[in-house]
C-alpha cells in the first residue's frame, strides 16, 4: 500500500453490481421453476385422480438442474389395493 492508495478508494460498487446480476438471474429462474414444479404436480395429480383414488401427498415431483439438461423426477405411489374410480 502506498500513500496514493489513500486518495484512491476501492471501487467495490461494480463488484456488487456484477454479483447481484449473476445471483438474481439464477434466483429468478429457480423461483419460476418451483412454480412450474407445483403446476406439474397439481396437473399430474388431477389426471391420476380421474382414474384412481390417490391421496394428494403420494405424488412427488422434483426438478434437478444441471448444466446441460434438467431432469424431472415424478414419483407416484398407489396404495394397495388400487381403487379404480368408476368411469
Amino acid at each position: 500500500m502506498t500513500i496514493f492508495d489513500f486518495f484512491r478508494p476501492t471501487r467495490s460498487a461494480p463488484v456488487a453490481r456484477d454479483r447481484l446480476q449473476i445471483l438474481l438471474q439464477h434466483e429468478r429462474v429457480s423461483a419460476g421453476a418451483s412454480d412450474l414444479v407445483a403446476i406439474l404436480r397439481e396437473e399430474i395429480l388431477a389426471v391420476i385422480s380421474r382414474h384412481v383414488d390417490i391421496p394428494s401427498d403420494k405424488v412427488q415431483v422434483k426438478m434437478q438442474r444441471d448444466e446441460a439438461v434438467s431432469t424431472l423426477e415424478v414419483e407416484i405411489e398407489l396404495p394397495n389395493p388400487i381403487r379404480r374410480r368408476a368411469a
Binding site: 478508494p9 471501487r11 467495490s12 460498487a13 453490481r17 446480476q21 438474481l24
Partner: peptide, 16 residues
C-alpha cells in the same frame, strides 16, 4: 459515495 464507486449507483439498481 456512488460517484467514488463505493455504492451502487441509481442506474445500477434500476438496471437490476
Amino acid at each position: 459515495r456512488a460517484e467514488r464507486g463505493q455504492m451502487l449507483k441509481v442506474d445500477d439498481v434500476l438496471e437490476i
